[in-house]
């Protein structure tokens, strides 16, 4: 499943969600991506990876999206192991992604 927009791409395949580009939609415009994330959690078979190594920018509505529609959903899914693959190249990832750990203590955050 793939959602493409102006300057970004969200793709779900083989229990991995990859988000690339710059994502700065208005809150209400995230609805299709919310559905994709929740569906990915529901369909996951024991593990799920979020790859944001090529996500250059994410706005605050996008942060809320990841927190609520992916991580909190994953935390409620029994036995689901969530991994986030991030990049040190982007300051916002270095500053913000580690704070996601508070939402799901057994989540793996891997920086490259």
């Amino acid at each position: 499943m793939k959602i493409e927009g102006d300057g970004y791409c969200v793709e779900h395949e083989n229990e991995e969600i990859a988000i690339r580009g710059k994502l700065s939609l208005m809150l209400e415009d995230y609805a299709p991506i919310e559905t994709l994330l929740e569906w990915a959690v529901a369909e996951a078979d024991g593990r799920l990876t979020l790859d944001i190594r090529n996500l250059e920018y994410l706005n605050s509505s996008g942060i809320k999206l990841l927190c609520v529609n992916l991580i909190l959903e994953a935390a409620d899914a029994p036995g689901l192991a969530l991994t986030i693959r991030c990049s040190n190249r982007f300051t916002w990832q270095r500053e913000t992604v580690p704070t996601f750990q508070d939402l799901m203590t057994d989540m793996v955050i891997a920086f490259e």
């Binding site: 942060i63 927190c67 609520v68 991580i71 909190l72 916002w92 500053e95 913000t96 508070d102 939402l103």
Partner: peptide
Amino acid sequence: GLEKTVQIVTRFSGR
């Protein structure tokens, strides 16, 4: 979780 999300988003927005 939502309370923590509010904190995360608020910190992010502030930055």
